[in-house]
């Protein structure tokens, strides 16, 4: 499990962002950090979420409230895409059987 963790300090230095940005994202529930022996880490899956927030913030100047709204809408979109995929599979099955 620890192999999948990367320190938030390293990420901030790499992306040239303030650690407060990550803290604020966490307060909004947009990323989730893990603390091990007083060091704050991010799971690789969470890293992808953080990088998405960094890109949206830098490219489109979206603020925290905007990022929160985007994340919620994207989650809904992913759910719907999965549902469509499952329905397509079911429809294929239906066509095969009948």
């Amino acid at each position: 499990m620890e192999n999948n963790l990367i320190s938030v300090e390293d990420i901030c230095s790499f992306h040239n962002i303030e650690i407060n940005f990550v803290r604020s994202l966490e307060e909004f529930g947009l990323v989730q950090t893990t603390i091990i022996k007083k060091t704050v880490f991010l799971d690789l899956e969470e890293l992808a979420k953080l990088e998405r927030c960094i890109r949206l913030s830098k490219d489109l100047e979206i603020n925290l409230e905007g990022l929160h709204a985007v994340a919620q809408l994207l989650n809904q979109l992913y759910k719907m895409q999965n549902e469509v995929l499952q329905l397509k599979n079911e429809l294929n099955y239906y066509h095969q059987v009948h």
Partner: peptide, 14 residues
């Protein structure tokens, strides 16, 4: 800015 917001890859997954 207007078009980037519309077509940004993070806002248009897949």
């Amino acid at each position: 800015r207007k078009l980037a917001r519309k077509y940004h890859p993070d806002l248009n997954p897949n």
